[in-house]
């Protein structure tokens, strides 16, 4: 491909539509602002603040699940909250991903012994990326998002490779 790096003028690129979609999805992971507990301050507020500024990665928060690609579960999910988490996940359009942020969302964290706490959000919704830490630093969340991007890329590549092999 001979694309002018700066303007893209007079250039033509040949790309599979699947890969184009994949490129777009990977670079506009809009997450749903769904801060449950402490992790929300680190993963949603600091992340959208001026220092870490996730906007530059195309990671941006949306207030409605209908407009979101990613759900960051940032905090302890208890039995009262579990139903809401499931409902919100169901409301998100496909394709969708879930990031379990922090020890609580991964396994129950420091509150795992309390009978009212759900032991990890993966008991309710399928989780793509686990970010450990209590709370994880914004850098960890950034790394988690990069892992998610890799995962999306790899899924597309695997699909294409499988089709190639079957021919």
């Amino acid at each position: 491909m001979a694309i002018d790096r700066f303007t893209g003028e007079h250039s033509i690129a040949f790309i599979r539509v699947e890969q184009l979609f994949d490129l777009a999805r990977r670079n506009s992971l809009w997450y749903m602002a769904f801060g449950i507990a402490c992790c929300a301050i680190e993963g949603l507020m600091s992340a959208s603040g001026p220092r870490f500024d996730f906007d530059r990665m195309g990671v941006f928060f949306r207030a409605s699940p209908r407009q979101a690609d990613v759900m960051i579960v940032a905090g302890t999910v208890n039995k009262k909250m579990a139903e809401t988490v499931k409902t919100l996940y169901d409301q998100m359009p496909e394709p969708k991903w879930v990031v379990a942020m922090g020890a609580c969302a991964c396994t129950g964290g420091p509150f795992r012994e309390y009978p009212n706490v759900v032991l990890g959000v993966d008991q309710i919704v399928p989780v793509d990326v686990y970010i450990p830490g209590c709370p994880p630093r914004p850098e960890s969340v950034q790394y988690g998002f990069m892992q998610l991007q890799d995962k999306i890329k790899k899924q597309t590549e695997d699909r294409l490779a499988a089709r190639r092999d079957s021919h």
Partner: peptide, 18 residues
């Protein structure tokens, strides 16, 4: 704080998870 059917959690008879 809790949903219906949850036992009184702060009683001493209510045990936490092992």
């Amino acid at each position: 704080l809790t949903t219906d059917g949850v036992e009184p959690l702060l009683r001493k008879s209510s045990v936490i998870r092992t």
